[in-house]
Simulated scan of single mutants.
Amino acid sequence: MSNPNVTLPNHYILQIIAIVEDLGIPTDAWLSHLGVNPDKSEESLVTMPWSTFRQLLLDAGRFSNDKALGLMIGERLLINTHGILGYAALSSGSARQIVQLLERYLVLRTDLVTMETSERDGALWLHFFENRPLEDVRRPITEAIVLAVRNILDFTTMGTCDIREVTFPFEGDEKLAENVFRCPVAYNRERAGFSLPLESIDIPLKMANTVSFQEALKVCQQELDQLPAATTWSARIRRLMLQSRHGFPSLEMTARRFHVTPRTLHRRLIDEGTSYRAVLEGVRHQLSIRYLENGQMTIQEISFALGYSDIANFRKAFKRWESVPPSEYLNSRDP
Results as ranks from 00 to 15, higher is better:
A68W: 00
R132F: 06
S309D: 09
R109Y: 14
V211W: 01
D66G: 04
D225T: 11
L251D: 06
G86N: 08
G307M: 02
R138L: 14
P262G: 05
F248K: 05
L58D: 12
W30V: 02
A312V: 06
M297S: 09
A177G: 02
A89L: 04
R290Q: 06
V279A: 07
Y87N: 13
F53E: 08
R320W: 08
I73Q: 04
E199T: 14
H11I: 15
Y291K: 15
R62W: 10
V279L: 11
C183M: 05
L45K: 07
R267Y: 09
L71D: 00
V260T: 06
S250D: 01
A144R: 01
N10R: 14
S332W: 07
V6M: 05
T47D: 11
G83S: 02
Y87G: 12
V20G: 01
N209H: 12
S92K: 10
R284S: 05
R236T: 15
A216L: 02
I17F: 04
E130F: 01
D154R: 14
Q214E: 13
T142V: 11
A278K: 08
M241L: 04
F248A: 07
N5D: 14
W321E: 13
P262M: 01
P169E: 01
L23S: 07
P249S: 00
Q55W: 07
F258D: 00
P228W: 10
F248C: 01
L106E: 03
T47E: 15
P9I: 10
T27W: 03
I203P: 11
V146A: 10
D28C: 00
P140M: 12
